[in-house]
Structure formats: C-alpha cells, structure tokens
Design a protein around this nucleic acid. Structure first.
Lengths: 112, 112
DNA sequence: CGGTATCCTGGCTGATACTG
DNA sequence: CAGTATCAGCCAGGATACCG
C-alpha cells in the first residue's frame, strides 16, 4: 500500500462506515445473493430466505432501493406482482463482496 | 465478472457475513483507523475515540484480538502499560476497506 | 400477493463506579 | 493505567394480525 492510499485511509472512513451499516443488516447479504441470480418477487425472496419476516424483508428492500442497489418493478395485475432485481450499482457490489469472502475465508476463525 | 466468480458468489457468503459482523461494530472501523497510524495504548485509544466507553473499547479490542487483527502487548510496569497494534492480517484489511471507501464514495447517497 | 401495523425481545452500547 | 462490574436505554429484528 502506497502513501496516497495510507492518507486516504486515515481521513475518509465515513463512506465505508455507511456501506458497512447498509451491508451489515442481518439479511442484506442474503438478499443480494438471491437477486444476483436474477429477478425475484417478494414472495419468492421470503420463501428462499427462510425465517425472514415480511417486515424485515420490506425494510431491507426499501433501504437497498433507496441506495439504488435494487430496483422494484410493479405490475398492475390481480393478484399484484412486484419484482426486485439488482441494478448496475448493485452488480458493482459483487466485486467488493467477493473480496470480502476471500479475505474472510483466508483470515477469519470459523469457530465461535 | 466471470462465471467462476459468479459461482463463488452464489455459494459462499458466510465468511463475508462474518467479516461484516466484525467490521460492522459501531467503533471497529475507527479503532482500526487509529491503529493503522501506529501502536497505541488503551488510554490513547479511549481519548482519540471521543465518546467510546471503556467497556465497549475493551470488547471490540478483544474481538479484534481473537481474530488476530490486532495484537496486545503487556508491559509489566507500574503503572501498567498495554499497547495495541495491527497485525499483518489487520494490515491486509486496509485494502478491503479502501475498496469499500471507494465504492461507498461513488455509490452511496450521503443524505439520510 | 405484497406488503403495513403492532407489540415484544435480545444484544449492543452508554454511563458510571470500582479494582489490581 | 487498564480494564471489569453493574445498571439502564435504544433499536434491529421476530411474531403475528391485518389490509388493498
């Protein structure tokens, strides 16, 4: 790591903090993973993510949508149909997440 | 992103989840930032991180030490002196964090 | 089907006092 | 100085019921 990087590391952690606060939600990573394999409906997500409550799923999706990581498509049908998918910005997250997977795998104790 | 990466993304998010749970602590990033500029004592950290309680600082340091991200050096003196510093593993985190800073800066809404 | 409203709980954190 | 002990508060998340 060069001095330029070192400098930036010292001064600007806020965006990283915010990114962590968003990605750190209990189900956020799982939601992104589900959507990374393609568009899914609310019910499909709820079914895949066994154990998540509709309230939490809704909250996380709204947060991800606000950050433009996920888009929501509403079809005016009966019964209603709503589809969620990753945006380009969401796709750009994958690289970071893969780095995190790699680092975690190499460096974290799996116990406890 | 190639197919190999995509595959890994689908299957192994657990380490990323764990990494996020560790890094996501309210003060964790700040502690790492403080230590990235060099070895510091408990009191120094407490003073730099204005507002952190000794209980929380102790808890986060113990967690980081358990993951070997931080090392603790105890000097048997009166008054006691204890120094904390980043390990090589801790240093290796900087790259990930810089990527996170970069991604967050480019992609996250700063409002709300 | 796709949510929202309500109530409730556990865990992280803060404040503060105390100890080796 | 470097923590631990204790008590209290907040908030993400869980369970469940209900609505357009």
């Amino acid at each position: 790591m060069n001095n330029q990087d070192e400098q930036r590391l010292e001064e600007c952690y806020c965006p990283a903090q915010k990114a962590l606060s968003i990605l750190g939600g209990k189900w956020t990573l799982s939601i992104i993973r589900e959507l990374s394999s393609g568009t899914k409906r609310f019910g499909q997500l709820q079914k895949s993510l066994k154990g998540i409550s509709p309230k939490t799923l809704s909250a996380r999706l709204q947060e991800l949508e606000k950050q433009a990581i996920v888009t929501k498509e509403i079809y005016l049908e009966v019964p209603p149909r709503v589809e969620y998918s990753l945006t380009t910005k969401g796709e750009s997250l994958k690289k970071i997440l893969l780095d995190l997977v790699k680092w975690g795998t190499e460096n974290l104790r799996s116990e406890d």
